[in-house]
């Protein structure tokens, strides 16, 4: 049985837009994400200094407790048009965006 699921958002941003992206994430997404059961675990910046001539990537690590909570999150986002509108606005600021889902390696847990 899958336990805690991490949701990893990677937002690659042109120089000069980091503050705008951070602000949009804080004001346009975080409260709703919390309402949908997502917990913000960590944020990172890579490379670990703001660049002026090439993109940086902001990384947000979220979690939900299990697969049922994942579907609750997914269902709530699907029913709320403002969520896809948020990502459309965010994508206009990003040169690349990726979302991945991570679990504790089940093969290791199986002893492989």
């Amino acid at each position: 049985m899958v336990g805690k699921i991490h949701v990893l958002d990677e937002l690659t941003v042109e120089p000069g837009l980091l503050d705008q992206v951070r602000q949009l994430m804080a004001q346009g997404y975080m409260a709703g994400a919390s309402d949908r059961g997502m917990t913000l675990e960590q944020t990172w910046l890579t490379p670990p200094v703001e660049l002026f001539d090439q993109p940086n990537t902001l990384v947000y690590l979220w979690s939900v407790p299990d697969a049922a909570a994942w579907w609750a999150m997914r269902g709530a986002a699907g029913r709320d048009p403002s969520v896809s509108e948020f990502w459309t606005e965010m994508d206009a600021l990003c040169v690349h965006r990726k979302r991945r889902f991570l679990v504790t390696d089940p093969l290791v847990e199986e002893g492989r």
Binding site: W71, R74, A77, G78, W87, D91, K98, R99, F101
Partner: peptide, 16 residues
């Protein structure tokens, strides 16, 4: 996990 972790990305409005 194959469903929610992979397939659903084609359906999910939060996924690029």
């Amino acid at each position: 996990p194959h469903h929610w972790g992979l397939i659903d990305g084609w359906f999910d409005p939060e996924m690029p």
